[in-house]
């Protein structure tokens, strides 16, 4: 790890910790985020972690560029990774079904697996939450088995229903709200992932395992089974 600090805006610095996406980096990222919050205190306007970087936005009335860099340097001194059990584990129910998943069969064709095989492969492992972004509570998770890796749709959809589970390259995520989006949709979850009062259910560093449920269980858990074609 060779941290670099770069200017990205009048009041924003980016701290680059790594150059590649790797689960092994997460404990370092979490530790750095915690240290930065402590170091900046009330002078921190926003802290935006992503896969390998932390965007630090500071209050210009309290700090200048030089002082902000010094605080980052001090925060990183003697940094040690967060303990392995820092993140929570979530079992996330998903209804994998053609009616709500327009790309389930596309992925089966691409991969040479059966639809059941696609589902089984997607559920077999647990996933790391790498970052939140794009929309409130939208958690970028990975890494998906290479056989399921599928590029984004060439033209994003105008509307993807809330709860939709998608794959983009080797990442997987659930759309917390209805929004535009270009990921390949393979299922739908009944869970409410974001609430303004409670924040985001999934946090960077958490691990997620997808649990296939049938339609009855999906509805019992509060899912909306409106077919995809109707939701457009």
């Amino acid at each position: 790890m060779t941290p670099r600090i770069e200017v990205v805006g009048i009041d924003s610095l980016i701290l680059r910790l790594f150059d590649s996406i790797d689960e092994a980096h997460m404990p370092w990222m979490l530790a750095a985020a915690k240290r930065l919050r402590q170091a900046f205190g009330a002078a921190l306007t926003d802290l935006v972690p992503s896969y390998t970087t932390l965007l630090v936005q500071y209050d210009l009335l309290q700090l200048d560029d030089r002082r902000a860099r010094t605080l980052i340097d001090e925060a990183l001194e003697g940094l040690t990774p967060e303990a392995g059990d820092a993140g929570r584990c979530h079992d996330v129910p998903v209804w994998y079904d053609r009616r709500v998943s327009p790309e389930l069969e596309t992925l089966a064709e691409r991969s040479g697996l059966s639809v059941a095989g696609v589902i089984e492969t997607h559920c077999r492992q647990s996933y790391q939450v790498f970052a939140l972004g794009f929309a409130p509570g939208f958690a970028f998770m990975g890494l998906v088995e290479p056989i399921l890796a599928t590029p984004r749709l060439s033209t994003p959809r105008k509307r993807v229903p809330a709860g939709s589970l998608g794959i983009a390259d080797r990442q997987t995520a659930i759309y917390p709200q209805a929004s535009p989006g270009g990921w390949n949709l393979i299922g739908r979850s009944p869970l409410r992932l974001f609430d303004p009062a409670d924040g985001s259910l999934l946090q960077p560093g958490d691990r997620v395992r997808f649990m296939p449920v049938d339609r009855a269980e999906f509805i019992r858990l509060g899912g909306d089974d409106t077919p995809f074609e109707v939701t457009r």
Partner: peptide, 9 residues
Amino acid sequence: ISEGVPLGA
């Protein structure tokens, strides 16, 4: 790799 973006980027 996606990263945080500031106002005015």
